[in-house]
Amino acid sequence: MVKLLEAVEISLTMNSKKILDSVNLCFDRGINLIAGPNGSGKTTLLKILAGLLRPSSGKILLDGLDITMKKAHERVKLGIIMAPERMKLPLSLTVDENLRFCDRNRAYEYFPELKKISEKKARDLSGGERQMVILARAFAKNSKYLLLDEPFQGLHEKIKERIIKLLEEEGRKRGILVVTHDELEKIFSMSDYICVLTNGKLLYAGEKEGGEKILKKFFI
């Protein structure tokens, strides 16, 4: 069976430092957790999958189709959407303007609190509010794959709970790749597929049961 999204022998070298070393991964529908200590290459891997970085070697396949040379905006059209961490937002646009790049009504359904601040400029939002806009935009855009980098960063506990529920629902419809340090236990318990990276190398990739020991030993 052809997996939805595959990383084949992905390596990345920057300033003669190996960031990723021959990583092989296959992602399918459901929640896919990418775990590992800081600096292990998790975010880099997501950026390569989203087309924001080009690997030094290796291939990215979507439904068997080689998309390695496709740029980020082309991958969005193919259904791979990334919600980047660290508040990556066009800051001079209002919340409402930012949500015009997705299905606005759906975005407001997911996060009704954004309606109250819809006319606020992104630069005037708090970290948590910005994160909500990024997530609302990512969830409210039809995609095959959703790549979430630290989705819980700066969010209130209640919102975190809602996102966990949202992940559960959306995971049935599409593939979701999550890189997170927050709420790791909860995400782990609902994940269908786990991969663990250390120093740019793949330590484990497979079913949750097999990865539990490794993950608990090192991170949880």
Binding site: K71, A72, E74, K77, I81, L91, S92, R100, F101
Partner: peptide, 23 residues
């Protein structure tokens, strides 16, 4: 316009704009 929004998104943060599918 919507076009102008995309132009401003590119101006503000090119990587963020790429991530939402803007060339």
């Amino acid at each position: 316009s919507y076009f102008g929004l995309k132009v401003k998104a590119v101006r503000d943060d090119e990587i963020a704009a790429k991530a939402i599918g803007i060339n």
